[in-house]
Amino acid sequence: MFEARLVQSSIFKKVLEAIKELLNEATFDCSDSGIQLQAMDSSHVSLVSLNLRSDGFDQYRCDRNLSMGINLASMTKIMKCAGNDDIMTMKAQDNADSVTFMFESPNQEKMSDYEMKLMNLDQEHLGIPETDYSCVIKLPSAEFARICRDLSQFGESVVISCTKEGVKFSAAGDIGSANIKLAQTANVDKEDEAVSIEMQEKVSLTFACRYLNYFTKATPLSPQVCLSMSAEVPLVVEYKIGEIGHIRYYLAPKIEE
């Protein structure tokens, strides 16, 4: 038996928004420790890794490990039926071929349930090596979304260069070129608005704008985003999900031909 209750169903809505443009379907792996998802986009350029810890749920029970293959468009339809303030419960029997979503209004005067068929998906898990990254940049997530949106007007690629002084995002194309530099913030009263850089070695890498823009769909989940980079390895873009977990995106770099 699997049962997970979340008072804020809006968190789950936001998680779905953050993955549904990159992935058509995905397997939600449920275990005693929580719900995990790992999936690559169809072109195998990026990977989504979601972790929702069981202790972050208001109630959580998972007697046997359960892999739920889910069509994300179907799940989006169901999550649209939940009010932002609704309490959500996901429920499935062991070896079930369906999952039930139950939504309760805060005053408990409206209760609804939606049953969704599960899919059999080929499970393909990748081993992600532990990496000490040369640069770890934390910045406001809305700022990062703005930068990705603005630079994608100039070209298909963004160069992210990080030094001790700051981080520079650059793009170039037919209409010209663009550079956005962010310096590390000196004194900030509000942690959410800070730009911080931990640098061992300077790094400059090129990434496809299109994917960065997909990742920024996670912006509503967290006021800050963390970018981790090392030479010639995939970029990690991480958004914390409150007290419950995180979503990480990995993106393979573009290299000189």
Binding site: L47, G127, A208, A252, K254, E256
Partner: peptide, 14 residues
């Protein structure tokens, strides 16, 4: 000109 690398060249199947 740059070329997109596949993620599978960094992360191996488990």
């Amino acid at each position: 000109p740059t070329k997109q690398v596949s993620l599978t060249s960094f992360f191996k199947k488990k």
